[in-house]
Design a protein around this nucleic acid. Structure first.
Length: 468
RNA sequence: GUCCCCAUCGUCUAGAGGCCUAGGACACCACCCUUUCAAGGUGGCGACACGGGUUCGAAUCCCGUUGGGGACGCCA
C-alpha cells in the first residue's frame, strides 16, 4: 500500500512545538515508507483563521525543511464538497436535521454533566422526529446518526486497541445552521479525498477518532490507520498551549537555535532508537517508524535543546554560520562593522562556536572581532587594567610584540611566555591583562588565537589604547 | 463529574520474563587539562509510584490503588 500522510494545522496562530513534531512525524513516516506527505490548512473557521497565521505556518515548516508533496489543500475551498457529502448522508437517512436552540443544547449539556456522562450529551430528540414538527423560524444543523448500542474499537498504531462503548458517542453536528461543515465532517471528507492512509496526530484527537470512524462508515469509505501520538508537555507537566509556554518555532529561530537541532530534538521526544541521541535526517528517515513511538507524554526541556544546539553549531557549515552571524550582527549593531569583520570571523568562528550554545551567543561574543577599537570594557577588564603593574607588563609586551618576527599562535605564545618567565610571573598574570586590553573582557577564546585573528595592526592598536 | 490514555534517575529515554547489582543522554557535583571561559577526559549523585497476584524467576504479564494527562462545542 502506498502511504499518504498529512499534516493539518488550523491557522489560528503560529506553528508551535507540538504541531512541528506532528508534522515531523508525518513527514518522516511518509519518507520512510516512500509515500507522500501532504499539507492541509484547516481554515473552515473563518473567524479565527488569518492569512498571517497561514504564512507563519508555512515559514515554520520551511525553516524545519519539511517539504510537502503536491499542492497545499485549503479546507475552506472544499466546502461545497463537504456540504454535498452531508446532503448525501441526509438523503440516505444516515443524518438528519436538528432544530434545537442553543438554550435547549445548554440544558442538555448541563443535565448530562449532572448525570456523570462523558462524550454524549445530545439526547437525539430530533433523530426520529417528524420533520413537519420543525419550527420555521429556526435554521437547522445536520447531525449524523451514531450507533445506539454496542462498542467501537480503534486499533491505533501508537495507542494500541482502544475501545469505547457507543453510548458515549452522540449524534454530532456535521453541518452548521449556516450550511458550513464542521471540523469533524471536513477532516473525514478531505482525508478521504486526499487518499490519506495514515492519520498521525496529537492524542488530544483520540476521542474524535471514534466519531470519525463512524462517519467513514456512513460514507462507505475505507478507514485510514490512526496513530495518536502523545502530546508534548511544558516543564510543569501540563499540555503545551499558547498560554503555557508553547512558543512558535520562529521564537526558537530568534533564540539562535538551528533548525537541524529542533528536528533532532523533536524527533527524540517520544521516539527513540536505542541509545542514539544525535540522529541525522538520513538516519531518521531510515529508522523512523510508529512502533517505536512511546505512549507517554514528554516534557519540553530547554537544557537538552541547548546542549543539542551546541553540538549542531559545531557541526554546522562555517560559511553558512558566519553569514548568519554577520547578518545578525550588522542588523543589531549601532556602529559600523570593521572592514575586516568577515575575514576575522572566518578565522575566529570555530573558537567562538566552541563556547556557544546558540547563534545569538556567537553574535554576542563575536563583537571583539567584528568591531575595531576603541572597544568597551566590562567591569572586570577595567579593574585589571587599573593595575599599574599590569600596565607595565602590557607596555613591555607591546614593544616585544611589535618586533615579533612572525604572527602565529606559536610565536606569540613564546614571546609572552618568555616575558612571563623572565619576570617570574605566572602566564595568567600577563595573559589576563592582555585579554582585558584586547577583548575588553575577562572571558574570551585563547588569547593567542585572538591576536592571530585580530592581526598585528589591530592587536598593537588595542594594546596602545589600553596603556595610554 | 464522566470517559479515555499514561506511569523507569529532576528531564528525555534503553528495557518487549532470566543478559538488570536497571544502560545511555541532558542537568548537577568532583577531579584532570588549562592564560580566562568553554570544549574535552575521568569519576560521582540519581529511577523501575504503591499494593496484590501469575511464574522457578517480573521494570517487563494481570488486577487494584495512587498520581499525572487528555477529551467532553453549530473550535479545530
Amino acid at each position: 500500500m502506498d502511504v499518504v500522510t498529512r499534516f493539518a494545522p488550523s491557522p489560528t496562530g503560529y506553528l508551535h512545538i507540538g504541531g512541528a513534531r506532528t508534522a515531523l512525524f508525518n513527514w518522516l513516516f511518509a519518507r520512510h515508507h516512500g509515500g507522500r506527505y501532504m499539507l492541509r490548512i484547516e481554515d473552515t473557521d473563518k473567524k479565527r483563521s488569518t492569512q498571517d497565521a497561514i504564512d507563519k505556518i508555512f515559514e515554520g515548516l520551511d525553516w524545519l525543511d519539511l517539504d510537502h508533496d503536491g499542492d497545499v489543500v485549503f479546507q475552506s475551498r472544499n466546502m461545497d464538497r463537504h456540504a454535498e457529502v452531508a446532503a448525501q448522508l441526509l438523503a440516505e437517512g444516515k443524518a438528519y436535521k436538528c432544530y434545537c436552540s442553543p438554550e435547549e443544547l445548554a440544558e442538555m449539556r448541563e443535565k448530562a454533566r449532572e448525570n456523570g456522562s462523558s462524550g454524549a450529551f445530545y439526547d437525539n430528540r430530533w433523530r426520529d422526529r417528524d420533520p413537519f414538527e420543525a419550527p420555521d423560524d429556526v435554521a437547522p444543523v445536520v447531525r449524523i446518526k451514531m450507533p445506539l448500542d454496542g462498542e467501537t474499537t480503534i486499533s491505533d498504531l501508537v495507542q494500541g486497541d482502544v475501545t469505547r462503548t457507543n453510548d458515549q458517542l452522540d449524534d454530532f453536528v456535521i453541518l452548521r445552521s449556516d450550511g458550513t461543515p464542521t471540523y469533524m465532517l471536513a477532516v473525514v471528507v478531505d482525508d478521504h479525498d486526499m487518499g490519506a492512509t495514515h492519520v498521525i496526530r496529537g492524542d488530544d484527537h483520540l476521542n474524535n477518532a471514534f466519531r470519525q470512524y463512524h462517519l467513514y462508515r456512513a460514507c462507505g469509505w475505507d478507514i485510514p490507520e490512526f496513530a495518536h501520538i502523545p502530546l508534548i508537555h511544558g516543564a510543569d507537566g501540563a499540555k503545551m498551549s499558547k498560554r503555557h509556554g508553547a512558543l512558535g518555532v520562529d521564537h526558537y529561530d530568534e533564540l539562535g537555535i538551528l533548525p537541524e537541532t529542533m528536528r533532532n530534538y523533536l524527533l527524540r521526544l517520544g521516539w527513540s532508537h536505542g541509545d542514539d541521541e544525535i540522529i541525522s535526517t538520513a538516519e531518521a528517515i531510515e529508522w523512523f517508524d510508529l512502533d517505536a513511538v512511546g505512549r507517554s507524554p514528554a516534557r519540553f526541556d530547554m537544557d537538552r535543546l541547548l546542549n543539542l544546539n551546541a553540538h549542531y553549531l559545531k557541526a554546522a557549515d562555517p560559511t553558512r554560520l558566519a553569514a548568519q552571524v554577520l547578518q545578525q550582527a550588522s542588523d543589531s549593531a549601532d556602529k559600523d562593522l570593521s572592514p575586516n569583520a568577515e575575514e576575522r570571523l572566518v578565522t575566529g568562528l570555530a573558537g567562538l562556536t566552541q563556547r556557544a550554545k546558540t547563534v545569538n551567543e556567537i553574535v554576542e561574543s563575536a563583537g571583539l572581532y567584528l568591531f575595531d577599537a576603541p572597544l568597551s570594557f566590562n567591569e572586570k577588564a577595567q579593574t585589571m587594567l587599573a593595575d599599574p603593574a599590569a600596565l607595565d607588563h602590557l607596555r613591555a609586551l607591546t614593544g616585544m610584540l611589535s618586533d615579533a618576527a612572525s604572527w602565529d599562535e606559536e610565536s606569540l605564545d613564546s614571546v609572552v611566555r618568555s616575558y612571563a618567565e623572565a619576570n617570574a610571573l605566572k602566564l595568567g598574570q600577563v595573559a589576563q591583562p592582555l585579554r582585558a586590553a584586547l577583548t575588553g573582557s575577562n572571558v574570551s577564546p585563547g588569547i593567542f588565537e585572538v591576536m592571530v585573528v585580530l592581526g598585528p595592526e589591530e592587536t598593537l592598536n588595542r594594546l596602545q589604547l589600553a596603556v595610554s
